[in-house]
Design a protein around this nucleic acid. Structure first.
Lengths: 105, 105
DNA sequence: TATTCATTTCGTAAAATTACGAAACAAATG
DNA sequence: CATTTGTTTCGTAATTTTACGAAATGAATA
């Protein structure tokens, strides 16, 4: 094989994933957003709605939404000129299970 | 009363706390450490033991331990020249409950 | 008392995060 | 086709995070 200086994988995929989800939730604004989306599963949520409940600039909120999207916890459905945000159920469930397992190891 | 420019509290204590715990867990090395401590509740854990299982400098590990201590997830009992680390059970339990509630809102 | 030991703190540097307002965007509307 | 609308991206700046090796620490030991 002759692999040179194989960079050992030190963290398990689970550890990497938990860290990733945790990072997404490591800012109170993003926790707030997830709470907000979880509380309003029916009438779905526009960036502007949330901006009015948050003490941050719209552009900053947009970056937080981007972070959550990047981690896979939310998704945005375009509904011009609005963008309807909601929780990504599959990944949300995965995160829930992973954290639960983590705390019960 | 005459409070001037009261800075509104925008995030609930729960939201702040979840963000805090999440931040503590937002690096794979710190998830690894918690896993390690959870797996070795009996024969307790020295910094050096963990250092040998991690691809980071001892000083870096020490900073990660400091972070986890700051968040309240672990505690270190001095046992010169060693320091025996273990999970802070009360806060660990609290974090577990908070995340569980969070994912079930 | 000088040395050893496991560990932490310090000094430093690179990279990532958070934040804002201005500008850009893309679709619907006048 | 110019304007409006909700939202994002860009440019920028301040702060925080991550990382390392060197130096410091503090208790036990030679």
């Amino acid at each position: 094989m002759n692999k040179i200086a194989t960079p050992k994988k030190f963290y398990t995929p689970d550890q990497e994933k938990i860290a990733l989800y945790a990072k997404a939730l490591s800012h109170p604004a993003r926790v707030f957003i997830m709470d907000y989306l979880a509380k309003n599963t029916e009438r779905c949520c526009y960036s502007g709605d949330m901006a009015e409940n948050l003490p941050i600039a719209r552009s900053t909120l947009s970056e937080h939404l981007k972070e959550l999207k990047k981690a896979g916890l939310i998704q945005g459905e375009i509904n011009t000129p609005y963008i309807k945000y909601c929780i990504n159920r599959a990944n949300w469930e995965e995160a829930k299970v992973m954290f639960n397992d983590f705390f019960n190891r």
